[in-house]
């Protein structure tokens, strides 16, 4: 026999278990906290954009005027270079050999000038001797003419030999230039950002897929900000701008507008992938910032917020963005 209270007690227990299940089974899922706090805009209305840090000079992809095997790389990544410093040398043996030939040619043509000079003096002496004879009967007209012509000829030879010297000198200079061109020098002062060649490799002339060397002026860094063309009309040059380092919003810096690229370009994906996937165009604005405030590296991505009027209230700017 069931005692009187068995079922009610069981029921109460069951209900309590039900309530427990409800309470226990419906606890809110914990919220996953971000690893780094996302950057927030300090402005009430703004344009957000993705920025990439680049050197002020823009990043110079160094090329070589002449293709050839690399003989020597004179700098390491990170080296500071002055304008004119040697970056790398291309194999110059052929040019050197030619230089020797040119030099020999010069010597020879110089010797030829001496020879021509001597010949000219000789003919001049002979001419003067005969011209010194006052008695015209003692000399024949023919002899006089012959000597005069010989002298003229010798003078012309001398001129020719001299011209030959100039020519060989020019040729020598040309070879010298070729030699110079085989030495690639820094066009501006800056920092070596990338070195993609090593001695023994063939450095092709012309536009390659990757720069042989990337040089930049890191004294002043710029941030190139991509602004969606749909938001471009809201962009104001006078708007304040702030950039945050991705991954740590503690690092932020105020930006100063340097210039706005006048040409709206197809968006280059900034996700790090080289292929283009996005069929939108972006307005690019360049900003400078104080390097001391931000430990940024060239090529790093930034979250940028640019103060801009609200989409509803904004009037399109009356003036065109200036160039540079």
């Amino acid at each position: 026999m069931l005692p009187k209270y068995t079922l009610p007690l069981l029921a109460a227990g069951g209900f309590a278990f039900g309530v427990y299940t409800v309470v226990n089974g419906n606890q809110p899922v914990p919220v996953a906290q971000p690893v780094a706090e996302p950057a927030n805009s300090p402005f009430p209305t703004f344009i957000a954009g993705s920025g990439i840090v680049e050197a002020k000079s823009q990043n110079i992809s160094i090329g070589t005027p002449l293709g050839g095997i690399v003989l020597q790389v004179a700098v390491k990544v990170g080296d500071m270079v002055k304008a004119g410093d040697i970056l790398f040398r291309i194999d110059d043996r052929e040019a050197l050999a030619e230089l020797g030939v040119r030099k020999a040619n010069l010597a020879r043509s110089k010797a030829a000038v001496g020879e021509a000079e001597a010949s000219a003096i000789d003919t001049k002496t002979l001419l003067e001797l005969i011209e010194a004879v006052t008695d015209r009967r003692a000399i024949s007209t023919e002899d006089l003419d012959r000597r005069r012509n010989a002298h003229l000829l010798a003078k012309a030879r001398l001129e020719s030999a001299r011209a030959q010297v100039l020519q060989t000198e020019a040729e020598l200079a040309s070879t010298q230039t070729t030699l110079d061109r085989l030495v690639v020098r820094a066009p501006v002062a800056g920092k070596v950002l990338q070195v993609n060649i090593r001695p023994g490799e063939f450095a092709p002339a012309g536009v390659g897929t990757s720069a042989l060397m990337v040089l930049g002026n890191l004294d002043q860094l710029h941030i190139r900000v991509d602004i969606d063309e749909n938001d471009a009309w809201r962009f104001r040059k006078e708007g304040n701008a702030v950039a945050y380092l991705r991954g740590n919003r503690q690092f932020k810096t105020d930006l100063k507008l340097v210039w706005v690229e006048p040409y709206v370009i197809p968006k280059r994906s900034l996700t790090g992938d080289s292929t283009e996937r996005v069929d939108t165009r972006v307005l690019q604005a360049l900003y400078s910032f104080n390097r001391a405030t931000l430990p940024a590296y060239v090529g790093q991505q930034m979250d940028v917020f640019i103060e801009a009027p609200d989409a509803d209230s904004a009037q399109p700017p009356m003036h065109q963005p200036d160039q540079k």
Binding site: P38, A48, S50, D231, R277, V278
Partner: peptide, 19 residues
């Protein structure tokens, strides 16, 4: 969506962040 939509959303007033 296109990747740039992210920035358009980010630029809407009242958005603290958009990811």
């Amino acid at each position: 969506l296109q990747d740039t939509k992210l920035y358009r959303v980010r630029g809407v007033a009242g958005v603290k962040w958009a990811m």
